[in-house]
């Protein structure tokens, strides 16, 4: 008996790489172009805004404007997101050892760290909004909200995936033989983290 999806029935694929894993790598390759285009837009428009608030401390015609970024705060939420990559690794390692209880704990921890990051972003967005920064207020507002919002949406989707896996685990369907599911979620999650490091560096830190 032969099946159409060889990878999932223990048959070899031509490259030896699982179909779904290859799909995930390709997806991440195109994600690079998504984020690349947005980051390029941000960098291109950097310093072009004429209306406050500005991202960093700026002096225009003798008037000083203090920058809107709260670097210590964003550093903390960046740290939270980085830690979630660690818990993700621990979750996968636990599942591959078939320690399902530990895997569940780490999956939930990863999701909670992701939610914490999102809460931080929501707080930051509201703060900025109250200081007068909106999508339409300046080109800085447009590029900032769309880029970080696009990333935040990715984190939210990641949290949804993690919670789905957690529910799968509760029903006993997330086993070491099915650890590929968690591995794929992990690939996505790490990618989203790496993108955040790029955003944090280019958008927040470099003036």
């Amino acid at each position: 008996m032969q099946h159409v999806t060889p990878a999932e029935h223990g048959m070899e694929t031509s490259t030896g790489l699982d179909n779904r894993k290859l799909l995930m790598w390709l997806f991440l390759a195109s994600e690079c172009l998504f984020f690349g285009s947005l980051v390029a837009t941000y960098l291109l428009y950097k310093g072009r805004s004429t209306t406050p608030p500005f991202p960093h401390d700026t002096t225009i015609a003798g008037v000083e404007y203090s920058g809107i970024y709260d670097i210590p705060f964003t550093s903390v939420s960046s740290f939270v997101l980085l830690m979630s990559s660690l818990t993700m690794v621990l979750a996968l390692a636990a599942l591959q050892r078939d320690n399902r209880r530990a895997a569940q704990v780490w999956i939930l921890a990863t999701a909670l760290l992701g939610i914490t990051f999102l809460a931080g972003q929501a707080f930051e967005f509201t703060e900025f909004y109250h200081e007068g920064l909106t999508v339409s207020s300046s080109v800085f507002g447009s590029t900032f909200f769309v880029l970080t919002g696009f990333h935040g949406t990715h984190v939210a989707v990641g949290v949804l995936i993690l919670l789905s896996l957690f529910v799968m685990g509760l029903r006993g369907r997330l086993t070491s033989e099915r650890s590929l599911n968690l591995e794929l979620a992990g690939l996505y999650w790490h990618f989203v983290d790496v993108v955040w490091i790029v955003i944090f560096t280019f958008v927040y830190l470099i003036q």
Binding site: T41, L44, Y45, R48, S49, T50, T51, V135, S136, S138, V139, F140, G141, S142, T143, V146
Partner: peptide
């Protein structure tokens, strides 16, 4: 975003191009 939310990506008046 420019069409629906009056963003400035392609709006030269506000620094867009």
């Amino acid at each position: 975003f420019d069409r629906f939310f009056a963003a400035n990506f392609f709006n030269p008046e506000n620094g867009g191009d």
